[in-house]
């Protein structure tokens, strides 16, 4: 796997677009999801993901080994930060975007295969909605770390590579982001009841 990836990278560095496209297919899901979580709507996320891969191709020779996944995600992160800055300069509040988010949810959310009661399904769905909304409210630097760690499953070391930050910063942002989300879930009383009872006991 890693060898195959290195081979693709080397071929792409020699100008083989098809090899590069094989890498794109490997990582486009991750890149798109990261962009979506950072930018909040499908159109911006798709544009950013496309820009990120173009930029990666153009700067391929700057890749000097290590985790290609982290390298690509780093480029995508930078593209998103640029987009966010541009948005701040010229704020266009997209009401459609928020509508889009909730419209997309049902399609990506199905009843789990295990025997799940309707109540459990409803709770899970409610939890997902709340956590998505909560994520969108997090400061970007915390959100980024939470997404990379909990949604994308990167190790702390890889996240540090993506962000160019040290492990202490990663741990602290992750902890604060998670704590904030927990507070939101608490407010909506979405954390499992027994924990709350236990706390009251």
């Amino acid at each position: 796997m890693a060898n195959e990836e290195l081979r693709l990278v080397a071929a792409a560095q020699r100008g083989d677009v098809e090899s590069f496209n094989a890498l794109v297919r490997l990582y486009e899901g991750r890149v798109y999801n990261l962009c979506y979580r950072l930018l909040g709507d499908a159109d911006s996320a798709a544009d950013a993901a496309q820009d990120a891969f173009l930029s990666a191709y153009r700067h391929l020779r700057a890749f000097r080994g290590g985790s290609f996944r982290a390298w690509v995600l780093r480029i995508a992160t930078n593209v998103c930060y640029d987009a966010l800055r541009a948005r701040q300069r010229r704020p266009v509040v997209s009401l459609d975007a928020t509508g889009e988010t909730s419209a997309e949810e049902p399609s990506s959310f199905q009843i789990a295969d295990t025997a799940e009661t309707p109540d459990e399904f409803a709770l899970r769905r409610e939890l997902a909605r709340a956590i998505e909304a909560g994520l969108a409210q997090l400061p970007v630097d915390q959100r980024l770390v939470v997404v990379l760690c909990d949604l994308q499953g990167l190790t702390y070391e890889e996240i540090a590579e993506v962000l160019g930050a040290n492990l202490g910063t990663i741990k602290s942002r992750l902890s604060r982001g998670r704590a904030r989300l927990r507070d939101l879930l608490r407010q909506e009383e979405l954390l499992p009841l027994r924990f709350r009872h236990e706390g009251e006991a």
Binding site: Y32, A49, L54, I131, V146, D150, R182, L185, L191
Partner: peptide, 22 residues
């Protein structure tokens, strides 16, 4: 915290609307 993280991990990844191959 564990329940929160679990909720995050359970979020379904979104499917990209198109391919980004060059």
């Amino acid at each position: 915290l564990r329940a929160t993280v679990q909720a995050l991990r359970d979020l379904e990844p979104l499917r990209p609307p198109r391919s980004f191959t060059l």
